[in-house]
Design a protein around this nucleic acid. Structure first.
Lengths: 338, 338
DNA sequence: CTGAAAGCGCTTACAG
DNA sequence: CTGAAAGCGCTTACAG
């Protein structure tokens, strides 16, 4: 294991001091161009790689953001993560990402690790089960910046970036209502988490605006995943008379519903129709392509980075909430009862 | 900004030394249970979070793996990344991930950053354009461990995890040949990168084994992405008489081909049929669901972590190549000419 | 069982 | 323009 070359070694070769080498390599104005050039040349020849760990320890600024997400292999998160990495890199920040796997205890451990890694700020999308906000509060108390995105916690005194969950779902349902549907079911996520609660509110408001009574039997709570969608659809089926159309709280849930419908031998749109909050690049190729509210994951990710960095650089900063509008994508479904 | 609690502060409160506090918190056997208990209690009360940067600098072991991938929002990589994080965490390692965005220069910078961050080893899937292997060689020369996965570089003296690209593609094409197809086109990636080269070799071998002549006009090189698939299909169309079936080098490319076919007004399987190397969870819901070679991204990710960690812990270790077999998923396409 | 000291590799005032 | 020194917050032999 050939040990890494250090400033000390370079100093020995060039016959100067560690501090001079350090300053020369960071292009500090106090060093003469000649010395600078020589040191930089030698450093290159020796294959010097700065020890970033040591640098982070001794210097104040880290330019590092901690990112905590519940999952990666997911239409929304994979895109948001990619955009976050890209945007942060453009702005000269590194990202330390941790994956909680929808496990609140693990999320907490990751947060502590990131804290220990001395990140300047955090970008967070919480797990489905996160209820204890005390760690977030204590991070805030340490004056570290937190920006939540998508899965936010409203009660906290920090900024966030979301899509227009309530309005977007309202628009989606309104589209179906305009097309003549009156019996609409809803596969909800969990209402204890922000996006679940807001989207459901949008669904309910759309019905209310048209004086269509809510049928509780047509609403199933239970998660945002494919299996949750599957289970939800099965539950709906068991409960008896089905609605004409089902709206799902997420694209993943919609996939689960599609599988369930296939298994039940129900066809779209004759037996039942379906629309979804959220979609993916695969949607246009699907059977059927779903009418859906499209979330701009990349934009949400980018805005989150932008917001966090602005809070990091500008000292004074109020709680801010950025809402990225969803876009109604009209595809093959939700186009009205036969 | 309430400064973070340090060992020094705890030592002051408990009236002992920094070294004792350090040892007590890491449960070192040299410290008496009584002292240990008290220190741990006080540390908790004071809200101590160890400075991992300082710890990494002073201790030899980091238990950190650098991960470099070309992208995140991608059916293979998003799954592989998730599995890598999970497996590494299970084994007590942290992951520092960087995203190269298919940019070889950026990939190199990320590698240097990771090196500076003192990671123990690297997990890498190179960009489409990576040709210069000198940095990898110099990393190897520093006796750092490297494990490549999926997009590997064969010439390097290090271990790798791949799927059976050649055999898998051979099997996929053989399936179509068995079904009676004789005119088969191929949307290839780039042959300068491992997976592109191997998959193409499998395609060619399958034809050769049946004495079916290769028609160069039916092979298009140009990348692994959706737009590459689209462009490839368009090129094929311009070239004149189409093959009966097209095989794509990736699922993303298949999506591009589907878009192109739609635009060209060609229907599947009447006008042309399609099969794909690689699929995704969305495939079963697609129109049509593609017959495809399924790569086990999670397994590849897990094996890569396992292999790297074994190289990190066992000193002596030879170059090893793990091949995770693909699985032929027979769906609606590739089932034979009408 | 506990503590003083050196050291990890850097940066950053401060002298000169 | 250059260098000696202190310090970042920890760990780890080494004394005692």
């Amino acid at each position: 294991m050939s040990k890494a070359v250090t400033l000390k070694q370079i100093a020995a070769v060039v016959n100067t001091s560690v501090s001079t080498v350090s300053m020369a390599l960071s292009d500090h104005p106090h060093i003469s161009p000649v010395t600078k050039a020589e040191i930089q040349k030698i450093a290159k020849i020796m294959g010097y790689t700065p020890n970033l760990i040591a640098r982070k320890l001794s210097s104040r600024k880290k330019r590092t953001i901690g990112l905590v997400v519940p999952k990666v292999a997911h239409p929304f998160f994979s895109e948001a993560i990619e955009a976050i990495y890209d945007e942060a890199h453009q702005r000269g920040y590194d990202i330390f990402m941790m994956v909680s796997g929808e496990d609140a205890a693990l999320e907490e451990r990751h947060l502590r690790t990131l804290l220990g890694l001395q990140v300047d700020g955090f970008l967070i999308s919480v797990t489905e089960k996160t209820t204890d906000t005390s760690l977030f509060e204590s991070i805030l108390a340490k004056n570290k910046k937190l920006v939540f995105f998508d899965r936010i916690i409203e009660s906290l005194e920090c900024s966030s970036v979301v899509c227009d969950d309530e309005q977007g779902c309202y628009n989606l349902i309104s589209f179906a209502l305009d097309k003549g549907y009156t019996k609409i079911g809803y596969i909800a996520g969990y209402s204890n988490i922000y996006i679940g609660r807001e989207r459901r509110r949008g669904f309910e408001r759309a019905l209310k605006d048209r004086n269509i009574p809510l049928n509780p039997a047509w609403i199933v709570e239970g998660g945002f995943d494919q299996n949750d969608g599957y289970a939800g659809m099965m539950k709906l089926y068991e409960r008896g008379p089905l609605p004409q159309l089902i709206c799902t709280v997420s694209f993943a849930a919609a996939l689960g519903v599609l599988s369930a419908l296939h298994e039940l031998g129900l066809s779209i749109p004759n037996d039942i129709d379906i629309i979804s909050f959220g979609d993916s690049g695969y949607n246009p190729h699907m059977k059927p392509a779903l009418t859906a509210a499209h979330l701009d994951a990349k934009e949400i990710g980018r805005k989150a980075v932008e917001l966090l960095i602005s809070q990091l650089t500008n000292t004074q900063q109020a709680k801010e909430k950025i809402v990225v509008p969803t876009k109604l994508m009209i595809n093959e479904t939700g186009r009205g009862p036969a």
